[in-house]
Amino acid sequence: METQGQQLLGAREIDNRVHRMAFQIQENHPRTPFVLVGIFKRGVPLAKRLAKVLEMERPDVKCGAIDITLYRDDPGNVSAADVMEVAEMPLDIDGSVVVLVDDVLFTGRTVRAAIDALMDFGRPAKIELACLVDRGHRELPIQPNYCGLVRHTGPGEYLRVVLREEDGQDGLYLVKSKTDPVTPA
C-alpha cells in the first residue's frame, strides 16, 4: 500500500481497537440501554462499526449521527462550502446513555460543540466519549472514556484517519501537513 506519511494503524489493528472499545462500552453498561452517536464525518461509520460488533449481545443498541457545523465556536471560519449533513437521531435520547463517537480527539472543541448539539435533542442521562485516536493538545477539560490509541503529536505532525466507508480503505497515518493526501494503493 503506497501512502504518504507513516502508517500507525492498519485495517486489522483499527478493527481490533474498535472491537476493544465496543466491549469496554458493553462492560460499562451491561444492562442499561445506550445510544451510539457519531460525529460527522468519520465518527458516523465508527459508531456503526461499534454497534455492529455488539449486535449479537446488544440488539437494542441504536445509532445516531450529528453534525456540529451550527455549534462551532468559530463560525467565522466555517467556509461557505462546508456542507451540513442531515442529523439522524434515534427519536428520544431523554434519559438514555449516549456515547459520542469521533475519529480523532484533539482540542476538544468539536466534542464541546457535539455536547451542545446533543443537549438540543434532549436531556441524556449521561454522555460518554469514544475516539479512535487521541492526539493530545486539549484546549478544554474533555477526556475520552474509550480510546483506541493515544498518540500525542508534535509540531508539524498531523493524524489522518481513513475509513473504508468514506475513503475506500482503513488506516491511521501520521502526516506532515493538514492537506497531505493519503493515496490508496
Partner: peptide, 20 residues
C-alpha cells in the same frame, strides 16, 4: 442542499441553533 438539515431542526424539541 443546506435547506434540508435546517428543515429537520423543526422536528426537534429545541428548534433554535446558535450560529448567528
Amino acid at each position: 442542499a443546506q435547506s434540508r438539515p435546517f428543515k429537520d431542526l423543526i422536528r426537534r424539541s429545541v428548534k433554535k441553533v446558535p450560529p448567528l
